[in-house]
Simulated assay, not measured.
Amino acid sequence: MDDVYVHEHALKYGLDEDEIIYAWTNFVRSQQRRTPREDQIVRTGYGKKTARSIQMIGVAASYGTLIIHAMNPVQDSIRRELGLPRR
């Protein structure tokens, strides 16, 4: 399994690092983005402490994955991108 790191920007919506990493590694849906953002992976998952839905964007690198964005709730645009039903 790749190492997972959380960029400080991903913490700006009030989620903590442990909750983000838990949601990332126990994801519900994951997809590599298309051009021009093919270096990004978009995922949804649930936090361990609060069981709230979280959307995340990570960037694959040689050292592992850097999560650059995480927020709750999952936006409709991300739901559409991942083929999930609307809320």
Rank of each mutant, 00 (worst) to 15 (best):
A60Y: 04
L84C: 09
I20M: 01
V74F: 02
I41Y: 03
I78H: 07
A51V: 10
Q32T: 04
M71T: 08
V74W: 01
I67T: 03
T44Q: 12
G14C: 03
H7L: 01
L66I: 13
L15E: 00
R80W: 10
I41K: 02
G47C: 06
L66S: 12
T50F: 12
E81W: 09
D18E: 15
D16N: 15
G14F: 04
V74T: 04
V59C: 13
D3H: 11
A51C: 06
Y5S: 02
R34Y: 05
A61M: 13
Y63P: 02
R86Y: 14
L15C: 02
D3S: 12
I54P: 03
Q40V: 05
D16Y: 10
R33D: 14
F27C: 08
G14V: 07
Q32S: 11
V6R: 00
G47W: 05
I21T: 08
Y63T: 13
Q32E: 09
I21Y: 02
I57E: 06
I57K: 09
V6L: 00
L11N: 05
I57P: 04
I41T: 07
V6Y: 00
D16M: 09
A10Y: 02
F27P: 11
V6I: 01
E19C: 05
N26C: 11
H7E: 06
V74H: 01
I41S: 03
T44F: 13
M56S: 02
E19T: 06
A70R: 00
T50R: 12
R37N: 09
Y22T: 09
R86F: 15
K48A: 07
Y22P: 04
Q31M: 15
V6N: 00
A51N: 14
L82K: 07
I68W: 05
L84Q: 12
T25V: 15
K49D: 06
R37E: 11
D18L: 10
S77R: 15
